[in-house]
C-alpha cells in the first residue's frame, strides 16, 4: 500500500512539474496573460508584437467561464458589454472596465453577389441567409437589429460563431450573412460588404479590464498599450471608443 502511495506521489509531482513552466515578470517588458475575444486576435497580436504577452483567444462567454474556473488571466477583453458585465457580477474583475473599440454588423455576400441582395430589405427573402444564433454575442446584435428594422428574418442556419457565418459565405454555401465589419474586412476579396446604417448607429462595444487576483501592474501596462493603439484597431475595421 505504501508503495502505491509513493508511486502516486511521484506521478503527481511529475505532473505538477510539467505545469509550472510560467514565465517570471520582466520589468523591462509587458508579460501579462491576456484572455481576449477571438475577434481581437489579429489587432492584439500586432499591438503586442514586441512584448512577452501570452494570449488566449476564444468566445467571450467561454473566456468568462474559464476565468471563473480559475484560469490564470491578468487581462480580460470582451467582444460585448453583456459578458463584461457578467464577469463583473461574478467578482472576476479588478477595477473598472474600459470601452476601447466598437464594431457593427454588415451584410456580406460571396464575391459577385449571386443572389442579388441589396440590403436589409425584401431582397433577403429569396436568398439563403446565414446568421449567428441568438445565444452568442453577434446573434444578440442580429436580433436587436431585426427588431429595430421591424424585419422578420428567416435564416437557413443560425451558426454558433461569427466565423462560422463567414465560412458559409466565403464557401458560397449561403447567399448572404450578417457578420461584424471586422470579420468582413478580414475576408478580403472573397466577400462583398453591404453596409447597414441602422447597425452603425447602434454599435457593439468592446471592453477591457484587469482580472481580480491577476498581476494588476502588468494588466494595466497592457491595457494602456491597447488604449494607445487606436490606429492598429482601426486598420482591422474597429471603430474608436
Amino acid at each position: 500500500m505504501s508503495k502505491l502511495a509513493a508511486g502516486l506521489a511521484a506521478v503527481v509531482l511529475a505532473l505538477s512539474a510539467c505545469a509550472s513552466g510560467e514565465a517570471q515578470p520582466d520589468d523591462a517588458e509587458i508579460s501579462a496573460t491576456v484572455f481576449a475575444a477571438a475577434s481581437l486576435s489579429a489587432p492584439f497580436e500586432e499591438i503586442a508584437a514586441d512584448t512577452d504577452v501570452n494570449f488566449s483567444f476564444d468566445g467571450s462567454s467561454g473566456l468568462v467561464d474559464q476565468i471563473a474556473g480559475g484560469a490564470p488571466a491578468d487581462v480580460f477583453a470582451s467582444a460585448d458589454q453583456r459578458n463584461m458585465v457578467g464577469a463583473v457580477e461574478q467578482g472576476l474583475i479588478a477595477g473598472e472596465p474600459t470601452m476601447f473599440a466598437t464594431n457593427y454588423l454588415v451584410l456580406v455576400t460571396p464575391a459577385g453577389n449571386p443572389a442579388g441582395v441589396t440590403g436589409m430589405d425584401a431582397s433577403l427573402e429569396d436568398a439563403k441567409l446565414v446568421v449567428c444564433a441568438p445565444e452568442v454575442p453577434c446573434g444578440g446584435a442580429t436580433e436587436r437589429l431585426a427588431e429595430t428594422l421591424g424585419l422578420a428574418l428567416s435564416p437557413v442556419s443560425e451558426e454558433t460563431s461569427v466565423t462560422n457565418v463567414l465560412g458559409k459565405i466565403t464557401s458560397g454555401e449561403g447567399d448572404v450573412g450578417l457578420v461584424y465589419l471586422t470579420d468582413a474586412t478580414g475576408a478580403g476579396d472573397a466577400v462583398e460588404i453591404i453596409g447597414i446604417p441602422e447597425a452603425e448607429g447602434d454599435p457593439n462595444t468592446y471592453w477591457i479590464a484587469a482580472v481580480e487576483g491577476g498581476d494588476t501592474e502588468q494588466a494595466q501596462a497592457f491595457i494602456d498599450l491597447v488604449m494607445d493603439s487606436p490606429d492598429v484597431l482601426a486598420g482591422y475595421g474597429f471603430g474608436s471608443a
Binding site: A133, P155, V156, S157, E158, E159, T160, E173
Partner: peptide
C-alpha cells in the same frame, strides 16, 4: 455537421 450542414433548430 457544423462545417457542412449548418445549425437550425
Amino acid at each position: 455537421t457544423l462545417t457542412f450542414a449548418g445549425s437550425l433548430q
